[in-house]
Write a protein that binds this DNA or RNA. Structure first.
Length: 512
RNA sequence: GGCCCGUUCGUCUAGGGGUUAGGACGCGUCCCUUUCACGGAUGAAACACGAGUUCGAUUCUCGUACGGGCUACCA
């Protein structure tokens, strides 16, 4: 048990887009593995043929890549010594059957021939008898068609005839099952609460319960992190390890708290009315024809997305909350994961992106936004201008893709001007001031922010007008709108020619 | 219903037998900026409830309430 090499896995089912809850499980696994210099494996648990969704596997891989939490072994990330990593392929190699047979042989599992109708009947019968938890267990198994009730001959005959059957775990009637969870401590459950779980389905596929255990053993997994929804079935899993005689190979368990809906109750679902995505990337569900927007397409930086996720249910123990991935790897620990579910907070999520937007160098931002701007305007811009735009406008944005809407007037010479401001501030006196400022500005050799501001102020003073009376009107003349970044900075960026042109346009259009 | 897990400001959380119960998001006010935003300052805002243990419980124990999860030949 001690000093095992750290090997963890993320093992999603390809039944749809990877939900952000899943991304967080992957993230915790990734951070834990990197922190301990271990391995992070991607295993695809595609044992349910009926729920298999084409494209889901690729989506999972792409999502992990975008988030920067890449496994170093497994499907899509280079096969390692334990290939294959897709359970359907492992099933073909007879891996699961072998373990199931071991359990049958040792008397800890049995064949069950019950049809689904018979199972339904059993449940109805138990419900009618007011049994608190109707299930296939040590008691009800005695009334069913399985190898614990049938004679050896009968069983052999059924098996030889190819009768559809499953293999079930033979859970003892009344036994205390104790297990330790890194996050929750000791958990005790009586086996009477655990049902005889199906291990091998009638189509020959293993269920999750068998498959994940077999794979965790064979892939030498040291720590199993998964969502809290698995806590109730953990006792059954303990039993399987025990009956296999492989308790020493059992990974340490860590059941992560769930991410809950921001408002109301319940766990976060595929859609949320907060307006923020629930998926890392855009996802289109072919079955239902529904599409879901992704964090990437919404305009999030992967770093911000990850930073937000890691703080849902974990914290470093101090007041810091902005971390690079490398910092997270250094400080992450399972001991600091909370027990309680965490409500997702859309507002704070946006705040994280804003923080990362602000940190991003203007040179990078400029290249990110260049395609948008060139597409909108049909013109080319040099890097300097775009960088200046980013520098001035980014303080107001949460997302790169908001920057155009916030400052399209950087690129488009205004042809209309904020009517409210005009109504309030435009009169003969202010108009004449603007005309005069235009003249004085034209005389400037150095069209810098400092010079233009000094000129504006001097002219206003000369004419006996308080700057407060005309400042906003002047801004509107230049940009068309009443708010925005520091005006003189913008004028410097626009340049003398463009600034004067804008003033001429305004002067021509302003009617007192 | 049964079983399991949980419960500190609206939200994410720190803390932990004796604290002015700290931070962040959001919200309010003020300053900065003749705008908006950023930034700075500041305010309102929490230990679910009841017992027990204790000199003293938000912290430990037990109940209650509430919330969540599970209860499939799904994961």
């Amino acid at each position: 048990m001690s000093e095992r090499r750290v090997r963890v896995r993320f093992a999603p089912s390809p039944t749809g887009g990877l939900h952000m809850g899943g991304v967080r499980v992957a993230l915790f696994n990734y951070l834990f593995a990197k922190k301990h210099g271990g391995d992070f494996i991607l295993r695809i648990e595609d044992t349910d043929q009926t729920r298999y969704v084409k494209g889901a596997e690729e989506y999972i891989i792409n999502s992990l890549k975008w988030c920067g939490i890449e496994p170093n072994e497994g499907v899509g990330f280079g096969d390692g010594p334990h290939a294959p990593y897709r359970q359907s392929e492992r099933k073909e190699k007879g891996i699961y059957k072998k373990y199931a047979d071991m359990l049958v042989k040792s008397g800890h599992a049995y064949y069950a021939f019950d049809t689904s109708e018979e199972l339904d009947e059993m449940r109805k019968r138990l419900e009618a008898a007011k049994v608190a938890a109707p299930q296939y267990n040590a008691v009800s198994r005695q009334t069913m068609r399985n190898s614990t009730t049938l004679s050896e001959d009968e069983v052999k005959k059924l098996l030889d005839a190819g009768t559809p059957h499953v293999i079930r775990l033979k859970v003892p009637r009344n036994e205390e099952i104790r297990f330790h969870d890194i996050i929750r401590g000791w958990v005790v459950v009586n086996s009477s609460q655990v049902d005889d779980k199906v291990l091998l389905k009638s189509d020959g596929m293993p269920t999750y319960h068998l498959a994940h255990i077999v794979d965790d053993i064979e892939m030498e997994i040291s720590h199993a992190m998964r969502g809290e929804e698995w806590l109730p079935s953990a006792p059954a899993h303990i039993l399987i390890y025990r009956y296999l005689g492989m308790e020493d190979k059992m990974p340490q368990l860590a059941h992560l708290p769930l991410i809950l809906k921001p408002d109301g109750n319940g766990k976060l679902s595929k859609r949320d009315k907060s307006g923020l995505p629930m998926f890392p990337l855009n996802w289109f569900d072919e079955r239902t024809n529904e599409s879901y927007i992704g964090y990437r397409e919404h305009g999030f930086f992967p770093e911000a997305f990850i930073n937000m996720l890691v703080l849902l249910g974990w914290n470093p123990g101090n007041n810091e909350e902005l971390f690079t991935k490398d910092e997270l790897i250094k400080i992450f620990s399972l001991e600091r994961v909370n027990k309680a579910g965490a409500k997702f907070d859309p507002e704070k999520t946006k705040w994280f992106n804003q923080q990362y937007l602000r940190k991003r160098p203007d040179t990078e931002l400029a290249e990110m936004i260049r395609p948008v701007i060139e597409e909108k305007t049909g013109k080319k811009y040099d890097a300097k201008f775009l960088e200046g735009f980013c520098r001035l406008i980014k303080e107001k944005a949460h997302f790169v893709n908001e920057m155009w809407d916030l400052g399209s007037y950087f690129f488009i010479t205004p042809t209309s001007w904020d009517a409210e401001v005009l109504k309030k501030r435009l009169n003969e006196q202010t108009l004449s001031l603007i005309k005069q400022v235009r003249q004085d500005l034209a005389a400037l050799a150095d069209f810098t922010a400092v010079e233009t501001e000094n000129t504006f102020k001097a002219t206003a003073e000369k004419m006996g007008i308080g700057t407060g009376q005309v400042m906003q009107l002047f801004r509107v003349a230049i940009t068309g709108v009443g708010g925005g970044p520091v005006l003189f900075e913008m004028m410097e960026l626009f340049g003398k020619e463009e600034s004067l042109k804008r003033l001429d346009n305004a002067i021509a259009a302003f009617k007192v």
